[in-house]
């Protein structure tokens, strides 16, 4: 005999409703800041790869 159930959606896990005005996405700010730091560091690394690591067509010594 087939049993019936709803599609899983985690609606039951919600403990409180947070509206537009009460919500401040500070966690998102923290993660975006970390991404910004990583990308900045990678750009500094690219400077070494591109300009100092080899004689590239863009830099004529």
């Amino acid at each position: 005999m087939a049993t019936e159930q709803p599609a899983a959606d985690h609606t039951d896990d919600i403990q409180r409703e947070i509206g537009h005005d009460e919500y401040n996405p500070v966690g998102t700010l923290a993660l975006v800041f970390i991404y910004f730091v990583i990308v900045s560091m990678l750009w500094i690394f690219v400077y070494f790869v591109e300009f100092l690591g080899r004689i590239s067509p863009m830099v004529v010594f």
Binding site: M1, A2, T3, E4, Q5, P6, A7, D9, T11
Partner: peptide, 9 residues
């Protein structure tokens, strides 16, 4: 599986 999904949120 003998279960059927019959509703969704």
């Amino acid at each position: 599986s003998t279960t059927k999904i019959t509703s969704e949120a």
